[in-house]
């Protein structure tokens, strides 16, 4: 694979990961807010709708960012990125 192909492949995979994680972010944030009343009927460490806003969403955000960093750093290695230091 020449350099341009690899760049394109790298960017495609970056965009795909970004889109998937963005969808997760959107679903968690606006799904749990929109359906807060319905979710509150479920009991999970208190009413679920409240729990999602107070803690659940935060946990998912932290994991999401952790996963993104891990995947992207692995992708850099896979494509032989020179350590872009300094």
């Amino acid at each position: 694979m020449n350099r341009d192909d690899r760049r394109q492949a790298y960017w495609r995979r970056t965009l795909r990961l970004t889109a998937v994680l963005l969808a997760v972010w959107f679903a968690v944030t606006f799904g749990s807010s929109w359906f807060a009343i319905e979710l509150n009927r479920i009991d999970f460490i208190g009413p679920l709708g409240y729990y999602m806003g107070a803690q659940g969403a935060l946990i998912i955000y932290v994991v999401l960012i952790w996963y993104y960093a891990r995947r992207m750093n692995a992708l850099d290695d896979e494509y032989g990125a020179a350590e872009d230091d300094e």
Binding site: L21, W25, L58, Y61, L64, I65
Partner: peptide, 21 residues
């Protein structure tokens, strides 16, 4: 009460955008 959670979610979920974009 619950409506104050907008600040909790808003001020943390934004980091997803910072990280991704």
């Amino acid at each position: 009460g619950h409506d104050g959670l907008a600040f909790i979610m808003g001020w943390t979920g934004g980091y997803c955008l910072v990280a991704l974009f």
